[in-house]
């Protein structure tokens, strides 16, 4: 079966983030980037399904030139080829449109992506992509079982509940972190990745997508909550102060 995995490149976890001068986005100049964590689980699931059922895994990503590095890393983990749509758009609907256009001629049997991104956190790209391709979808998936012509999934609900859903293939699934164990790229994998194909689709700004229906007007640090009493200084002094407060002020110990 042919599996496409839509991945996103996001700032390295725990990077110190600063706003740009206009206060509309983060300053990306000094940042390092990596694969969005839930997308890494989607990729792993795709690789495991290929091992079980045979076929091909294609990774696809929308983003600026730097994204090719993340695609290359996915190839090193075992994906067969990559598609890089060069665009700086951050609009969900626009990005889903770009993915749909590139994936339509590929007609994959299954499309996986992470349930949400660590940057925007909209958690919609996969679902919108399914709508644009006219495919059924299911979200926050913890288990994928391929059956003839269909897929049975375990979907996470709130408060520790789950549900099994069946739908015909092709389908789009958004994958929850933690459903499998991530593999590392092997030396051989890294070597092989150098010869694997990454198809680059360049879009020259103009008329690449419909105008977004929502724009980020301003990005800013949330107002600080003044209620927290923060203890600083050396750990022992801070610890002593905290215990004293918990005993005599909060009276909870």
């Amino acid at each position: 079966m042919k599996i496409a995995v839509a991945i996103k490149q996001v700032p390295l976890r725990d990077s110190p983030l600063r706003l740009n001068a206009a206060g509309t986005w983060i300053d990306e100049d000094t940042l390092s980037f990596e694969i969005n964590e839930p997308d890494a689980y989607a990729l792993e699931e795709a690789l495991q399904l290929r091992e079980k059922h045979g076929g091909e895994v294609i990774v696809i990503s929308v983003g600026p030139a730097r994204v090719s590095q993340t695609i290359r890393e996915a190839l090193a983990k075992g994906a067969d080829r990559g598609i890089h749509i060069e665009s700086s758009s951050i609009d969900t609907f626009g990005i889903a449109n770009l993915l749909a256009t590139a994936l339509r001629p590929e007609s994959p049997d299954l499309i996986l992506t992470g349930l949400q991104s660590d940057d925007l956190g909209y958690g919609q790209t996969g679902v919108v992509l399914a709508q644009l391709l006219g495919l059924p979808s299911s979200t926050i998936i913890m288990q994928v079982e391929i059956q003839p012509g269909k897929v049975r999934v375990k979907r996470e609900l709130e408060d520790g509940w789950f549900q099994h859903i069946e739908m015909p293939l092709p389908a789009v699934l958004t994958i929850q972190s933690g459903l499998n164990k991530l593999r590392y790229a092997t030396l051989m994998g890294i070597k092989k990745a150098k010869t694997k194909e990454i198809k680059v689709i360049s879009l020259d700004g103009a008329a690449e997508v419909a105008p977004p229906s929502a724009v980020i007007e301003k990005l800013y640090a949330p107002e600080k909550n003044k209620q927290a009493q923060i203890f600083e200084g050396d750990p022992r002094t801070a610890a002593a102060k905290l215990v004293e407060k918990l005993r005599f002020e909060a009276r909870v110990l």
Binding site: D91, F93, A96, Y122, V127, V128, Q131, S138, I140, E156
Partner: peptide
């Protein structure tokens, strides 16, 4: 912004050419 909404509302909004402003 429930798990149920996350499962279908983006698809619904897309039918109107919109992005769901989630959460």
């Amino acid at each position: 912004h429930t798990y149920q909404t996350r499962d279908y509302a983006p698809r619904l909004a897309a039918r109107f050419g919109r992005t769901l402003i989630g959460d």
